[in-house]
């Protein structure tokens, strides 16, 4: 009997080890090797060429534009996310599930279509194209278009994180605050916001990561004008297509470092959230 139990445990251990081994293999091939390739290609000709590529004026201009797009789209989507999560989680009303579906809609629309719809509205042959040209306003192939495209693809992130969290927290604490005489804003700042801050941080991090790296949607509306409408990911593409691999991977390394920073922040927010 005892040998039977022993062989069963041994079999189970063997199974566990095999599964853990497979997970490690997937992890190394899928996640570690791509990281390694980016770094090794970037510094294959030494650190000097890395810094040259990262510090050249076009790369700096691209970085600035990326930060502008992130700086505008993330705060707007945070306000939207909090507002959407508030009305979805604190009230019952007809059409609520439809509203939630619509909030998630940008997740199932291709980024290329996200760019396309703004071209159809504001491009030269678009609905408002003539009017915009007469008034000398440029949206497509300019910064406003890039911001709009980034906004579209990042709309759901904050709301998506906050809705389940706020639904789970219910309304008791807010009710108590109101009954004790707090105004609506006082209730929000002193009760709701502290309760959702880690969920909010988590949503902001995901939203920022996507806004930093958005490629397809921005690519459609950008026009790829170096130094003017080129974001960092688009700059990577241009360098790569010019067979300037070292420069492409050097700029990619900057984006990779930002991505890893976002992952660390996300992990930190998540651990706070679970407490």
């Amino acid at each position: 009997m005892s040998t039977l139990v022993l062989s069963a445990t041994r079999q189970r251990n063997l199974g566990a080890l095999t599964l853990i081994g497979c997970a490690w293999l997937v992890f190394v091939v899928f996640l570690v090797l791509p990281l390694y390739v980016v770094l090794s290609e970037a510094i294959q000709q030494g650190y000097a060429s890395f810094f040259t590529a990262v510090l050249e004026p076009d790369a700096i201009a691209a970085l600035k534009l990326t930060l502008i797009a992130v700086g505008i789209s993330v705060p707007l989507n945070v306000v939207f996310g909090v507002s959407a999560a508030w009305c979805v989680s604190k009230y019952e009303f007809r059409g609520k599930s439809l509203l939630v579906t619509l909030i998630d809609l940008p997740f199932s629309v291709s980024p290329i279509i996200a760019g396309l719809i703004y071209i159809l509205l504001f491009g030269a042959q678009g609905f408002f194209g003539e009017w915009l040209a007469e008034h000398d306003i440029q949206i497509i192939f300019a910064i406003p278009g890039i911001v709009l495209a980034t906004l579209f693809v990042t709309v759901p992130f904050v709301a998506r994180e906050l809705i389940p969290l706020m639904q789970q927290q219910g309304t008791q604490e807010e009710e108590a605050a109101r009954l004790l005489g707090a105004s609506g804003w006082q209730m929000f700042w002193h009760v709701t916001l502290p309760n959702i801050r880690w969920g909010l941080t988590y949503g902001v991090v995901l939203c920022t990561a996507r806004a930093l790296g958005e490629f397809g949607a921005v690519s459609v509306v950008s026009g790829h004008i170096r130094g003017f409408t080129n974001t960092l990911p688009l700059h990577v593409e241009i360098l790569y297509n010019e067979y300037n691999h070292v420069a492409a991977f050097s700029v990619a390394t900057v984006l990779l470092v930002m991505a890893l920073l976002m992952l660390i922040l996300k992990q930190w927010a998540q651990e706070r959230l679970e407490k």
């Binding site: 996640l31 790296g213 490629f215 990911p233 990577v236 890893l260 992952l263 996300k266």
Partner: peptide, 12 residues
């Protein structure tokens, strides 16, 4: 893969 810009993933 969510945090890494897709263009970086593509060239890597």
């Amino acid at each position: 893969p969510f945090a890494l810009p897709t263009a970086v993933a593509g060239i890597a």
